[in-house]
Amino acid sequence: MAKHDGSDEKWSQDVTEHSDALDLDDDVFTWDDPARIAASLKRSAESSRRRKGSAYQSAMSMLTFYVNRAGTNLPASQRDVLERAKDELRKAFGRD
């Protein structure tokens, strides 16, 4: 078994902060307005030239990634905001 050196302890935070797909607004996932979060993710995804999928796929993937990686450390109230942001994102891309 390989010895754990601690170098990958915060890999998900690094992905969130330095993703090749999107340049995110600071602290976007801590905001309390689902529509604002969705609008920011949409804007970031549409302006990115490094994404591999559609703007919708990139924005939704980043949001889902954050929710999943936060796991039990994400307060229920913020999880609810982010789940509602998914609905807002679907609306913003005409996928409701």
Score class of each variant (00 low, 15 high):
Phe29Asn: 02
Ser40Met: 06
Ala38Tyr: 06
Asn73Glu: 12
Gly94Thr: 01
Leu41Trp: 00
Leu22Met: 04
Asp8Leu: 13
Phe29Pro: 05
Ile37His: 02
Trp31Ile: 01
Val28Met: 00
Arg36Gln: 10
Asn73Tyr: 11
Leu24Val: 05
Arg50Pro: 04
Ser44Ala: 15
Thr16Phe: 09
Arg79Asn: 10
Gly71Met: 08
Ser7Phe: 14
Val15Met: 12
Lys86Gln: 11
Arg79Lys: 14
Lys91Cys: 01
Gly94Lys: 02
Gln13Glu: 15
Asp5Phe: 07
Met62Ile: 06
Ala21Cys: 10
Asp27Ala: 03
Asp80Thr: 12
Arg84His: 07
Leu74Asn: 11
Ser54Ala: 12
Ala92Trp: 02
Arg95Asn: 07
Ser61Met: 09
Asp14Val: 12
Asp80Ser: 11
Ala39Met: 00
Glu46Ser: 07
Thr30Phe: 01
Met60Thr: 07
Ala38Phe: 01
Trp11Leu: 14
Phe65Cys: 08
Ala21Pro: 03
Ala39Ser: 09
Leu74Cys: 08
Ala70Gly: 00
Glu17Thr: 04
Leu89Val: 08
Leu24Tyr: 06
Ala45Met: 05
Trp11Glu: 14
Asp14Phe: 13
Met62Trp: 06
Ser77Thr: 09
Trp31His: 07
Asn73Val: 00
Leu74Tyr: 09
Ser19Asn: 12
Phe29Ile: 10
Gln78Pro: 09
Gln78Asp: 13
Gly94Gln: 00
Phe65Asp: 05
Gln78His: 11
Phe29Asp: 01
Ser48His: 06
Arg36Pro: 01
Arg69Trp: 02
Phe93Asn: 04
Ala70Thr: 00
Ser7Lys: 15
Thr64Glu: 15
Ala55Lys: 06
Val67Arg: 12
Ala76Lys: 13
Trp11Pro: 03
Ser19Gly: 12
Glu17Tyr: 08
Glu88His: 08
Asp32Gly: 08
Met62Gln: 15
Ala2Leu: 15
Asp5Arg: 12
Arg95Gln: 07
Ser54Met: 02
Ser61Ile: 03
Asn68Ala: 09
Pro75Trp: 05
Trp11Cys: 09
Arg69Ser: 11
Leu74Met: 06
Gly71Leu: 08
Arg43Phe: 12
Arg43Gly: 06
Ala76Val: 08
Gly71Ser: 05
Ile37Cys: 02
Ser19Met: 09
Met62Pro: 03
Asp14Lys: 13
Ala76Glu: 13
Asp14Leu: 10
Arg69Ala: 07
Met60Tyr: 13
Ser12Asp: 15
Asp27Tyr: 10
Thr16Ser: 14
Arg36Cys: 03
Leu63Asp: 11
Thr64Arg: 13
His4Ala: 11
Ala39Phe: 00
Glu46Lys: 07
Asp32Met: 06
Gly6His: 13
Glu9Ile: 10
Ala76Asp: 15
Ser47Leu: 07
Ala92Asn: 01
Phe65Ile: 08
Lys42Thr: 15
Leu24Cys: 04
Leu74Glu: 06
Ala70Glu: 14
Leu22Ala: 08
Lys86Gly: 12
Gly53Ile: 00
Ala45Lys: 01
Lys91Thr: 03
Ala85Phe: 03
Ser44Asn: 03
Ala2Cys: 10
Ala21Met: 12
Arg69Gln: 14
Tyr66Gln: 10
Leu41Tyr: 00
Leu63Ile: 04
Ala45Asn: 11
Gln57Ile: 04
Gln13His: 13
Asn68Gln: 09
Pro75Gln: 08
Ser40Glu: 12
Leu74Val: 12
Asp26Tyr: 05
Phe29Gln: 06
Val81Asn: 09
Asp20Asn: 14
Arg43Cys: 11
Arg36Leu: 09
Ser19Lys: 01
His18Val: 00
Phe29Gly: 05
Val15His: 07
Trp11Tyr: 15
